[in-house]
C-alpha cells in the first residue's frame, strides 16, 4: 500500500467497477478455460519483469473483436515506470 492509498482519497467505486468488469468480461469472452487469462497475465508479467518495472495492479488484459468479426485481438497493457537497470536473462 502506498502513500496515496493510505492518506489520499479512495479510488472512486465506479473506477474500480470498470477495472473489475473489464477483466471478468475478458475472461468470459475466452470461452475456453476461465483461468487462462489469469495464468497468461502472470506468465507474461514474469517475463516482462526482467526488463521493466511495473506494478501488477496497473496491468490490464482485454480482448477485442477484430475488424473481420471472426477473430480476436488480445491487448495486454503493462504500464511501466522505467526499464530495469541490468536486465538479466535467467534460465
Amino acid at each position: 500500500m502506498n502513500f496515496m492509498q493510505l492518506f489520499g482519497r479512495k479510488s472512486k467505486s465506479s473506477t474500480i467497477a470498470k477495472q473489475r468488469l473489464k477483466l471478468v468480461i475478458t475472461q468470459d469472452r475466452f470461452d475456453v478455460d476461465e483461468q487462462l487469462v489469469t495464468r497468461l497475465t502472470h506468465d507474461l508479467a514474469e517475463v516482462l519483469a526482467k526488463y521493466f518495472e511495473f506494478s501488477m495492479n496497473s496491468v490490464q488484459m482485454s480482448l477485442k473483436k477484430a475488424q473481420d468479426g471472426n477473430s480476436y485481438i488480445l491487448v495486454a497493457d503493462f504500464p511501466y515506470k522505467k526499464a530495469t537497470k541490468h536486465p538479466s536473462i535467467k534460465g
Binding site: 472512486k12 465506479s14 473506477t15 467497477a17 470498470k18 468488469l21 473489464k22 468480461i25 477485442k64 473483436k65
Partner: peptide, 18 residues
C-alpha cells in the same frame, strides 16, 4: 451517482460493451 463517482458513466458502459 455518476457525479459522486459511484456509478459507471455512459461512456464506461459503452467502452466495455462496445
Amino acid at each position: 451517482l455518476v457525479k459522486s463517482g459511484n456509478m459507471l458513466d455512459k461512456s464506461d458502459v459503452l467502452d466495455i460493451l462496445n
